[in-house]
């Protein structure tokens, strides 16, 4: 899957958690600005794992998110790309 395809899926997953239409999640949006709470975040990560067949190394206790940067749509897309490359 190319970058645009991954981005579309990431936006779809975040939008589903936020109960928003995908058109309201901008490709440059930041997750905290979208208002996703901590449970929504872990549900979105689970959805990413299921959808892409990956295992996301994310620990909610690490504020700087060294293993998987979940702070923006762009950083999530980059993280998924990296995991898909293996």
């Amino acid at each position: 899957m190319d970058r645009a395809g991954i981005e579309a899926v990431v936006i779809e997953i975040l939008a589903a958690q936020l109960l928003l239409p995908p058109s309201e999640v901008a490709p440059d949006a930041r997750v905290d600005d979208l208002g996703l709470d901590s449970l929504g975040k872990v549900e979105a990560i689970f959805a990413l794992e299921e959808r892409f067949g990956i295992s996301v190394p994310f620990n909610a206790n690490e504020p700087d998110q060294p293993d998987f940067d979940f702070q923006s749509v762009g950083s999530i897309v980059a993280g998924v790309e990296r995991l898909l490359r293996g």
Binding site: V42, F46, F58, N59, A60, N61, E62
Partner: peptide, 20 residues
């Protein structure tokens, strides 16, 4: 594991660098 709150190594309450 699904909640992403478990530490992969040690438990370090109230310490900087704690991982869960």
């Amino acid at each position: 594991e699904g909640l992403r709150v478990l530490s992969p190594d040690m438990c370090r309450p109230f310490s900087l660098g704690r991982r869960g």
